[in-house]
Simulated assay, not measured.
Amino acid sequence: MKILVTGSSGFVGSRVIEVVKERGWESVGVVRSSSTHALNSPELFPIQALDAKTDWQGAFDKVDCVVHCAARVHQMQESESDVLEAYRLVNTHGTLHLAEQAAKAGVKRFVFVSSVKVNGERTLPEQPFTTEVLHAPDDPYGLSKYEAELALKALCERTNMELVTIRPPLVYGPGVKANFQSMMGWVAKGLPLPLGAIHNARSLVYIDNLVDLILTSCVHPHASGHTFLVSDGEDVSTTQLLKAVAKAMGKPSTLIPIPMCWIQLAAKAMGKPAVAERLCGNLQVDIEQTQSVLNWSPVVSFHEGITRTAAHFIEARNKEKNRSMS
């Protein structure tokens, strides 16, 4: 089995490459040509950029499946005048061009790592997302992924290439960055947080659970043509998440039980309602179809995933302290 993985230096793609090697499969990792890793390595395929003009010649030699993880993700303080077109350039047009070239080369299956944002930004209590999309996303990133899904479906219907689409929610694990890393930093410092009474429910997915589903989707005979949602199978509130991280770090939980409505009002007053939505809102996914079609279940529990993630964070933090002191 040989797999081409885009975004192979990213958080998800790099772990896909690692697990592929652990399973004894072959892999080709797509990297930017400016990367030093791209030099003289037969296991890497360098590209200038991911768009509708990317040169994929020679990338698909003996490749059975493409795992497309690369994407233009949310940027802080976007500077582009047309943000949607910036997302479309990579996430829609770049994805379709890659798939077209893969189909022409005879690649059997294309696994597209999309996003739960295709479904939307929030769910009502006890009404998790399913694979059905009720309306096009308002979010530019989500819309670019949704348009890619539609274009890929049309392409695969007129070619012999099979398509599998996966929509993950927030992905965490050792080495996670952005908001999840910041949250662990708050907990590690023992900072008192006004998040002790958040009674929401959010689906998360540990990196190894997502990677296991991706690789299962590469080979499972019943995966073709399906869209799969994925999570740890255990939804948690923001308060429960913070408590779990504190416990994994051996830190006291310093959460102040401020009512959610107060937090939402304060965030709105500061012009940051989206922050309150992420902290207090619901975002759940239903993975019953995924489990049923593939006979699949998460390989790592939520609590074990948090334990591994927190341990890596503490280890990296201690190494950084030692380096600064030496």
Rank of each mutant, 00 (worst) to 15 (best):
T6P: 03
T6R: 03
S9W: 00
V12H: 00
V16I: 11
V19C: 00
E22I: 00
E22Q: 12
V30I: 04
L39D: 00
N40K: 14
P42N: 07
P42Q: 05
K53V: 09
D55Y: 04
W56Y: 11
Q57H: 09
V66W: 03
Q75R: 15
E80W: 08
S81D: 13
D82Q: 13
L84Q: 12
E85T: 13
Y87C: 03
R88H: 10
V90E: 01
G94P: 03
T95G: 04
T95F: 02
L96S: 04
L98W: 01
E100M: 13
Q101S: 13
A102P: 03
G106R: 05
R109W: 07
V111L: 01
R122L: 10
Q127R: 15
Q127E: 14
T131V: 15
V133A: 11
L134D: 11
P137K: 11
D138C: 08
D139T: 05
G142H: 02
S144G: 12
K145V: 03
R158K: 15
T159R: 12
M161L: 15
M161E: 12
E162S: 11
V164Y: 09
P169Q: 09
V171G: 13
K177Y: 13
F180T: 14
M184I: 15
W186T: 06
V187P: 06
V187C: 11
K189S: 15
G190V: 14
L195T: 09
I198R: 11
I198F: 08
A201F: 09
S203T: 10
Y206Q: 09
D208W: 07
L210P: 00
V211D: 00
L215W: 02
C218G: 00
H222L: 09
L229V: 08
S231M: 01
S231D: 04
T239S: 12
V245P: 00
A246K: 09
A248K: 02
I256K: 04
P259F: 04
M260C: 08
C261Q: 08
W262R: 02
A266C: 03
M270N: 09
A276V: 04
N282G: 05
L283D: 02
L283N: 08
I287W: 04
Q291L: 12
W296K: 14
W296F: 15
E304C: 12
T307Q: 14
T309R: 06
I314C: 06
E315T: 15
E320L: 14
K321S: 07
